[in-house]
């Protein structure tokens, strides 16, 4: 198993939750396994629910076509940094990255 890193999830109110994540997991899995409120991941990461919407740090790639289509209809309006966190694979380089949780989800 690769060494775990730390991801930070930040609410709209500014509260930060630090969770361990393992390269190979998705960012959604790391959040859900640790019960980060506001990231549900109800479909388990198969691009069916959009309940794992985050505002991601820059440089983590761009949404694929299905992800892009689903982001057009998220509960909280998408922004330039919108991603579905189930589609972002955790990498060692992400240690300390901050993901913002949309307010109303």
């Amino acid at each position: 198993m690769p060494d775990p890193i730390t991801l930070i999830f930040r609410t709209a109110a500014g509260t930060e939750t630090r969770v361990p994540a393992t390269p190979g997991q998705s960012v959604m899995e790391a959040a859900v396994m640790n019960g980060v409120a506001g990231i549900e991941g109800e479909c388990g990461g198969c691009l069916s629910c959009a309940t794992c919407h985050v505002f991601a740090p820059e440089g983590l790639g761009t949404p694929g076509p299905d992800e892009d289509a689903m982001l057009d209809c998220t509960e909280v309006e998408r922004g330039p940094r919108s991603r579905l966190s189930c589609q972002i694979a955790v990498t060692a380089a992400m240690d300390g990255a901050v993901f913002d949780i949309p307010a109303a989800e």
Binding site: S48, D66, A69, C73
Partner: peptide
């Protein structure tokens, strides 16, 4: 048609 589904729910 994922975008349709998401829109439909809303």
């Amino acid at each position: 048609a994922a975008a349709d589904h998401m829109a439909a729910r809303r």
